[in-house]
């Protein structure tokens, strides 16, 4: 029953973000089109070859030109969708982010994990990452927290030892020690 309710809530969330999606699509494709035009111009400077009619820049230019056309087509499609979307049913960008706060928090933790790894090394940064993300995702009570600690030790320092000693694939050891 709860599964059905979860699926329904997800469907409602997706439906209520149609207007936001259309706006995001327009902005995203406008940005991409500008980037691709810049790269198209840059590709013109790539050297040509005396042995073949196409130089190093021809294929990328062909693709970039087509990409700009697709960006424009998607922008037109999104503008039409925006006109038909019900503005009263849409959610704001802030709420959209709030609804996905756990996903963004997990990605933010993953980003911090990547930044810390050169300093702390794989074993310690993984241990901290595993513990923090499990706490973010709800492992806050006694037994679940204990399980989270065990998981953090097994899959942090444990995996480091497995890859380093068994598979002979060394993982970063950290600059601080």
């Amino acid at each position: 029953m709860s599964t059905v309710a979860d699926r329904a809530s997800r469907a409602t969330r997706e439906a209520s973000s149609e207007r936001g999606k259309a706006i995001a699509n327009i902005l995203f494709n406008a940005g991409l089109a500008a980037l691709f035009i810049g790269l198209f111009v840059q590709a013109g400077d790539l050297p040509s070859s005396m042995w073949e009619p196409l130089g190093a820049g021809s294929f990328p230019r062909l693709i970039l030109g087509a990409l700009v056309l697709f960006n424009l087509a998607i922008m037109c499609q999104s503008m039409m969708a925006l006109r038909h979307a019900d503005p009263t049913a849409s959610v704001g960008a802030g709420r959209w982010f709030m609804q996905r706060r756990l996903a963004f928090a997990t990605l933010a933790a993953f980003c911090a994990y990547a930044l810390l790894m050169p300093w702390l090394g794989f074993a310690l940064s993984s241990l901290l990452f595993l513990l923090v993300v499990q706490i973010i995702l709800g492992a806050r009570s006694g037994r679940r927290l204990l399980v989270a600690c065990v998981i953090a030790v097994v899959f942090g320092p444990g995996l480091d030892a497995l890859f380093g000693h068994v598979f002979m694939i060394p993982l970063p050891s950290g600059r601080l020690w």
Partner: peptide, 25 residues
């Protein structure tokens, strides 16, 4: 809540295993 962080750590290993470059991460 257990699977996701564990698999993310495996993803990091996957990215590091080829060249052992943190920039890949």
């Amino acid at each position: 809540s257990i699977i996701v962080p564990v698999v993310l750590v495996c993803c990091a290993i996957g990215a590091l295993a080829l060249n052992n470059r943190v920039t890949d991460l």
